[in-house]
């Protein structure tokens, strides 16, 4: 007759908290690579939280072989699954960040141009059926593209003839 000890370990809980805090901070960044790192930290924090939820560590959970407290097998099974899922998603986001770098020379998440355009329509109080393209509103979509690219201000954005790849050579 052994009762499982379910009091969580304070150190583990603290680790979960720190992982979450750092993960959320990184997730708020604009660069996909940092977002990815944030996701990794958050994922690890969540996995650790599930392990903590399973109670304290014990003997290996093998059926029919226990006289001492076992580890909770269900929590471990769930964490295993979610580790695999996290791994696959990390691989995908890495590929996406790389593709973004291929296309733009950086991996920053960009604003939606269409949103900006609609917002401008409202600003100008223009009738919604008017096209706000170059000939009417006076600003081209190129300029709008530069305007919405906040935080990135690459020098070659101002001079379209500049280098195609990356801010590192600018």
């Amino acid at each position: 007759m052994i009762v499982l000890d379910t009091v969580p370990s304070g150190a583990l809980l603290l680790t979960v908290g720190v992982l979450f805090a750092a993960g959320v901070y990184l997730l708020l960044e604009r660069s996909l690579t940092r977002v990815l790192l944030g996701f990794v930290l958050l994922g690890n924090g969540a996995n650790l939280a599930i392990l903590v939820a399973g109670g304290r560590a014990g003997a290996p959970p093998i059926t029919g072989a226990t006289a001492e407290p076992m580890s909770d097998p269900l929590a471990q099974a769930m964490v295993l699954t979610s580790i695999v899922i996290t791994l696959a998603l990390v691989a995908f986001v890495l590929a996406m960040a790389y593709r973004s770098w291929q296309l733009h020379g950086h991996d920053e998440v960009q604003d939606d141009l269409e949103d900006t355009r609609i917002a401008r329509l409202a600003d100008a109080d223009a009738p919604s059926y008017a096209d706000s393209d170059a000939e009417e509103s006076g600003s081209t979509l190129d300029e709008e593209a530069v305007a919405v690219r906040d935080e990135v201000a690459l020098p070659d954005r101002e001079t379209p003839s500049g280098t195609t790849r990356g801010g590192e050579d600018a």
């Binding site: 969580p8 997730l27 996909l32 977002v35 996701f39 958050l42 994922g43 924090g45 969540a46 996995n47 939280a49 599930i50 903590v52 939820a53 399973g54 269900l74 929590a75 769930m78 979610s82 998603l89 995908f92 986001v93 996406m96 593709r99 973004s100 296309l103 998440v109 960009q110 939606d112």
Partner: peptide
């Protein structure tokens, strides 16, 4: 599509983590 996908993927990843944490809490 990469631009749109970045937004979509990051938001979905976040919601998945929230869900996972909720599952852990339910279990606890």
């Amino acid at each position: 599509r990469i631009r749109a996908g970045s937004v979509y993927v990051v938001v979905a990843l976040l919601s998945s983590i929230v869900f996972l944490v909720a599952v852990g809490l339910v279990y606890a």
